[in-house]
Design a protein around this nucleic acid. Structure first.
Lengths: 205, 205
DNA sequence: ACTATATCGGAACGAAGCTTTCCGTTCCAG
DNA sequence: CTGGAACGGAAAGCTTCGTTCCGATATAGT
């Protein structure tokens, strides 16, 4: 495959990647920002998606699929129950699925297909959580819904570039995992703490 | 004091309260939303603030003052060091100061006065944190800057009305405090966990 | 070589939303 | 009674955004 077809296929990927980056950074970003980031014209977007809503639905659906994949992998993990659960949490944080699902919800009309994926994702989350509770590695007063909100808190962390943001999210996830684990413990925190300069830089954009 | 002057004084308060509510819920909200919520006309706003920026600066400054007041109160607390620190955290979360400061920053040009308040707030935060570390009640691998980012995570929790949101923020703050406290422990979590219905309601606004 | 076609870039358009101004009205103080 | 402070809200003026449209370009098939 080469020539024009190849560029079209490459653009498919470029556009999705750009859309993910732009809309996770700012759910209200304009379509033009996606095109610019992807390095294509606006018409390249409208050839693939009939509207902005359509693109957002696609992103949300992909985000749910990713969530589902991570959850299924966690359920297959037959190793140490705590490590399986912690790995699941880290996987979801890395997938940034909260930014791709809940943060975008409300900006478009959900389709049945999308609703079904959301239900499936929710079921899997319940099972992963239940397994950890039954294994006795998780404090029992935290519910599945709590976990969902905690993911959103991790997703709210944004500082510097994507790499730094991911680093910090894992730092605070480690803190969170200490609070969730039974018995209580204090694991070492990964990644350097934020510098004062990193924080104060946000006052003057 | 009565008559027209009295209404003006009452409006001063009404407008500020409305602005706090509106802009903490949505930092990009239009001025008209503030006027509507306050139950006044737009001109009542522009009589008091020369521009939207001006109003935002005022809100931000007040937020910093509140932050400073809570911090000073914590420093005066001579009781149990852990309880003093935990009370400080709860106080800042209740003040919702992250929503009034950082979330609004960037939408206006900071003034020297505002910068000075920010510096003072930062100094106090450092002292409160240092005191808890020196007392040995706080895990030492968490920095003052970490605490600031953790406040922002609590402020990112939003579900249902203001009361429910506050309840949940305290629930997750309790979880967080478990992770911060030395030695490690698990305190009971306050407030009911989110219901599935509360979460799924957000998919269809 | 030549043309039909798929794809693209980006200007142009129209709708929507926002801040700010402006004007007529109300109501108190002197 | 009257001057003016305070008000409500419409309208001006501007920006931004989604979408459409058109001319350009490069390939695939003949």
């Amino acid at each position: 495959m080469s020539g024009r077809k190849a560029q079209a296929a490459r653009n498919d990927e470029l556009i999705l990647k750009a859309a993910r980056a732009v809309f996770t950074a700012d759910p209200g970003a304009p379509i033009a920002a996606v095109a610019e980031r992807a390095g294509v014209g606006i018409s390249a977007l409208y050839r693939r998606y009939s509207s902005k809503e359509d693109l957002l639905r696609k992103l949300c659906f992909d985000g749910l699929q990713l969530y589902i994949a991570v959850s299924e992998k966690a359920l297959e993990d037959q190793g140490d129950p705590w490590e399986a659960f912690a790995g699941y949490m880290r996987g979801i944080v890395d997938a940034d699925s909260s930014s791709l699902t809940i943060k975008l919800a409300g900006t478009f009309q959900p389709t049945p297909e999308l609703g079904a994926a959301a239900v499936r994702a929710s079921e899997l989350a319940t099972r992963v959580h239940a397994r950890a509770v039954e294994a006795g590695v998780l404090r029992p007063d935290v519910t599945t819904a709590d976990i969902a909100l905690l993911f959103e808190q991790m997703a709210s962390v944004k500082l510097g570039d994507d790499e730094r943001t991911g680093q910090l999210r894992h730092r605070y996830l480690a803190l969170l995992l200490d609070a969730l684990r039974r018995p209580a413990s204090h694991a070492a925190l990964p990644g350097p703490a934020p510098e004062d300069a990193e924080l104060s830089a946000r006052w003057v954009p």
